[in-house]
Design a binder for these strands. Structure first.
Lengths: 342, 342
DNA sequence: TTGTAGGCGTTATCAG
DNA sequence: CTGATAACGCCTACAA
């Protein structure tokens, strides 16, 4: 049992450079209180010995862990929207990295469990801040985080459901208008939408936006709610296309369902583009390479992740943070949509 | 500035229940040294006051953070294999969760930077263990982690490149045989492969496996290396199909490139299935819904994540861990492959 | 069975 | 500018 425990501490460095413990601390942290001569020497010795601050000790002393928390809830949704999760994490971590922050991830099966994780984080100080995804109507997480204001939070949802917490949100209205107007210009009169789970906040927002815009343009609009899975995407498509007056254009809340719709339509002998226009709310590589390729709303989830990270870092630094609306709505026109035939 | 700092500590609980500090600690940790009566009372009071252990203090005292580290390197690879990353994280976190462990993620642009992160983790004790992805030939990370044995590690790569570190690995040979034999039975003589980056360990392993198996069956085999991106998948496909004696079957190292190949072939007027068989090394939802759907090797990345997590937890617990080979190789037959026409 | 005291590594206070 | 000394919250010998 000789080596094993070879961690270099501040006192080791202090001893080796013949100064006091605190002198080393000052030197290492670039704070005043030491002469330039000793500072340089200490820095030198520390580097030589390979000293690195112990994260736990630092965290205990500073009451800051330099990490940001994220709970991934693995119900049907997460794995069906793979690209969202990966891209968000990519954006988050790349921005956090700039300030030396890490992303701490925990897994949860349901919202109840996630509530427990959040409570633990609040009480244990395991993370300096956290973000909340997939906010639902009257989300208990929001309630919890509001009432107990110790934890800096950013919510990824419409401000109307963030309960005053700073939120980063899409301009869903704008996107809905973009899509509905586009379909209207193509001559479509009866449109439909296969939406995400009804309990999700952004589904609710979109529901209203679509309804209003369709009404304003005198279009017939019907909507089925699904769980983002290909199975339900398929089923809803079949149901819609079996209606007495089927829609001539369908908008899907995610790419996976839009893709499933492609085969569903094909199996029913309906030609996408000519007889049926399909638009996806989320763009992804799948929409590009599918046959036909799918017209989709583009947004950069990666940069959304970066923005959230920036907001979180600001909150941690004690700066005031306002809700921010993402503005980059754009429709990418591909083969799955076209003018109403006839 | 009255409330703000309302964290409940062990001494608060001690005071409130009229016993000593250590008695509380014993009681809370289920260790002997307290009477059942006081233990129950302490537990009660602690619950009442909402006590939760401070993670930093605990980490400092126990030299264990209850977290496992993962560095995501965002070169081209990561975002092109989205599904792999998401599924791996899903598997990892769900298994870690069972023991209350978290996944700590940092982001890196290149291997040099990642080396720095690893060194910092080793010296700072920020994670109890870590895993290594995308191992390359003579990977400096492996070297580092081997020479400095303080950090429990599991590598996701062939044992031959894990340098003695415990590894979780696919049976690439078996998978290669599976695919090549299948194509051989269909009557294909000239096959090709669009592989991943040459520097990656598993690419190397697969290269050899394919070459050997093709040779054993007297098949012509050619291979281009790409970066997993759709662009390169497309370009390599075009190059292969423009050869004087083009292959009649092409295997792609990931689903994204296989999908890109679909459109590439179509644009060249080549009918997939009839004139060209396409097989993907990785399965995903995209392979199911594409037109034509793509024959693919199936493996469960989620359960691989769970296995790695299990190995890491074992290592942390001080148990011996051997390298483990995943066995679930299976080929899912879809529309993109078929018997050689003529 | 209980309480006291010291340590984990860092930061911050306060004398000298 | 320097060097003891306490504090952060928890764990664990060691005494009582």
């Amino acid at each position: 049992m000789i080596a094993a425990k070879m961690r270099v501490t501040i006192s080791d460095v202090a001893k080796a450079s013949g100064v006091s413990n605190s002198a080393v601390s000052y030197a290492l942290n670039g704070k005043p209180g030491v002469s330039k001569a000793t500072r340089d020497r200490v820095l030198d010795v520390a580097a030589q010995m390979g000293w690195r601050p112990n994260s736990a000790a630092k965290a205990l002393s500073n009451d800051a862990t330099h990490s940001v928390g994220l709970v991934l809830t693995y119900d049907t949704t997460v794995l069906s929207v793979e690209s969202f999760t990966t891209e968000l994490i990519a954006g988050l971590t790349s921005e956090l990295e700039k300030e030396g922050y890490s992303l701490l991830i925990r897994s949860s099966r349901n919202q109840q469990y996630e509530l427990g994780v959040i409570k633990e984080w609040i009480a244990s100080g395991a993370v300096d801040a956290m973000l909340v995804l997939n906010v639902e109507l009257d989300d208990p997480r929001i309630t919890l985080l509001k009432q107990d204001a110790r934890m800096p939070v950013v919510a990824l949802c419409d401000p109307s459901m963030a309960g005053g917490l700073p939120a980063l949100y899409d301009n869903e209205q704008d996107a809905a208008h973009l899509i509905v107007d586009y379909l209207n210009e193509l001559g479509h009169i009866r449109i439909a939408r296969v939406a995400g789970p009804e309990r999700l906040g952004h589904t609710f927002i979109r529901d209203n936006a679509f309804m209003e815009e369709a009404a304003a343009l005198n279009m017939t609009y019907s909507c089925f709610h699904a769980d983002y899975s290909p199975e339900q995407g398929r089923r809803c498509t079949e149901r819609l296309l079996s209606l007495p007056h089927p829609p001539t254009a369908i908008v899907y809340d995610n790419d996976v369902m839009a893709l499933a719709a492609l085969t569903a339509a094909k199996d029913m002998g309906i030609t996408v583009h000519d007889q049926l226009s399909i638009v996806s709310w989320d763009d992804s590589f799948m929409c590009e390479v599918s046959v036909p390729s799918i017209t989709a709303r583009r947004r950069s989830v990666v940069s959304q992740g970066q923005h959230v990270a920036r907001m979180l870092l600001d909150l941690i630094a004690g700066r005031h943070v306002d809700s921010i609306q993402e503005t980059d709505n754009e429709l990418v026109f591909r083969d799955s949509s076209g003018p109403l035939a006839g």
